[in-house]
Write a protein that binds this DNA or RNA. Sequence first.
RNA 1: GCCGGCUUAGCUCAGAGGUAGAGCAACGGUUUUGUAAACCGUGGGUCGAGGGUUCGAAUCCCUCAGCCGGCUCCA
Length: 633
Amino acid sequence: MFSSQDCLCTGVYQKRRKKVQKMNPLEKLRHSAAHVLATAILEIWPEAQLAAGPPVEGGFYYDVELDHRISPEDFPLIEEKMRRIIAERQPFKRIEVSREEARELALKGRLGALSERATPSRYKLDILESIPENEPITLYQNDHFIDLCAGPHVEDTGWIKGFKLTHVSSAYYKGDEKNPQLQRIYGTAFYSEKELEAYLKQLEAAKQRDHRKLGKELELFLIDEEVGPGLPLWLPKGAIIRAELQAFLTEELQRRGYLLVHTPHIGSLDLFRISGHYPYYRDSQFPPILEPAELKEFEQKQMSCAELANRLEKGEVSGYLLKPMNCPMHIRIFAAKPRSYRELPIRLAEFGTVYRFEKSGELSGLTRVRGFTQDDAHIFCMESQVEAELLSCLELVKVVVEKLGLTDAKARLGLRGEDKEKYVGGAESWQKAERDLRKAAQESGINFVEEPGEAAFYGPKVDFLVKDAIGRLWQLGTVQLDYNLPLRFSLTYVGEDGNKERPVIIHRAPFGSMERFLAILIEHFEGHFPLWLAPEQVRVIPLSDAFVPYGQKVTALLQQHKFRVTLDRKNETLGAKIRIAQLEKVPYMLIVGKKEEQMSRVSVRTARKGNLGEMELEAFLSLLLTECKERRI
RNA sequence: GCCGGCUUAGCUCAGAGGUAGAGCAACGGUUUUGUAAACCGUGGGUCGAGGGUUCGAAUCCCUCAGCCGGCUCCA
């Protein structure tokens, strides 16, 4: 019941924040660059209807409605015009007008335009309507281009020294699927050419550590068309990392009193009817699975799909669902027998694989998939235990994040939004839940921001967000407080006074999902995994065939200590073998030749630091043992 | 799901209407190597799938799939 895969769309996040923040100088410049882009577009296509053109992280965009489909092929022409506009150093003039004057201009098609036009500026008109009564209406003009705009802008277009159009996409007007689709042209701009170049270079470098690229190069995972989109296959090397991560977390769980359970991948439709996920979230689930006999009967009756769907929804037809979450099954484990307050809290944990039918356009590498494994657990406790349990969960997420060096992780306390309809439960339990979670977050010492509207529908949550290589923000770990499911499943325990009491559920996943977490880890380490996670930890490289026997001895010793070692017997030069090991990002290379064999030593080279020189074999072994045992990063 | 782009050998990519190429990898030899690429040879492709235009299609058109970038959604 929690959203370990929830992606907080950067754009939306930015927009919401921008309203309350003043623009910094770079944003101001980029905002002006958006106006220059709009001017250039209008010079080419005067009929274009403009919507909005704000600065965003990394650049700016302008949304336009235009019959001509703008493609990157059009960029050179647009950029050429922009360069000219910049060279002309056109001043930005601020003009304050009355609401009526602005309206008249918009009706004459003069807003977001170079001249009056036959068609009114429909989006500008709409934006004008949405400006609060007490706010002044301002226009900004450069050359013949007049736009409805709150500003601010740089003095003139000449300030834009380095700019580039980057990509084009579509966007719904005001982000609403029901509104028309506009073309969104993205670009970036800087105060100097040099900064632009540095930025583009940095973008290029970021692409090098993209987990989809490294995942393929290092043979960690595979997304195969024949298996299905969004259904990653873990290759042997990736599976090792996954297993090591699970082993690490399992140790932490056992230390904290969790009980491991295991539940199936499918469950009865009725289970998910009780939890509320079917049919309410039907669109984001794989359709139900029917029993063969029942399916045959429907075939014979020639039942239409619509009829079948209808009967499934009404609960007249039984079936199974690929589980979209693990909680209902953990709940059934809790409900399997009467529970006493004495045994609470009960913490049920599972690396549980769930399936969600994400829209095809949303799938992305390992970060957004249709089948993924959550490091899930549900803590069933008394209200009086909530605070301590929350604190323990937050501490665990902190341990995980710190142990793996994800120091950029940002925590967010998601609170109930203004639209109370979207949330279940009374004001009182929400206030209590929010207060408890806020208190726990503060006590845990994490830095967090509060975000109304980001709660789960059943309760507030703390999410840990991390950016990927190309700057997209993803939710990893999460801790969520839930008063809803215990009610829906009528969960009880026997309290101290013998009365039945309602437990509280805490949902939590420190990694979030194994898939997304590994994606972030690949990018974070740029494929250079720490020793304890590395699929191949040591490669022994004999100088020539003559030293293979010594190499075998070294390999055997390390294998005895459970290290993942391979002996490179390839018929290649030393340089070539080292190059291959480097590209495969094997953390330790041991070069063995005559010197090493005679002295029972090894020459140590690390993928990250290069040649470290010779070392006693035993000394190297103890170094490895320490590094691995402490899970150093 | 929507808009745009892309899809050629295991990988990275050339080929733009005249019948498929390179480098790396693989395989077979030669070489026996001291810290990021030894040398020679061999095999490998319904050019994402299907349909159309054409004497002729990797190349042009249509449909579909997958991927990429956004948008929307996201328990």
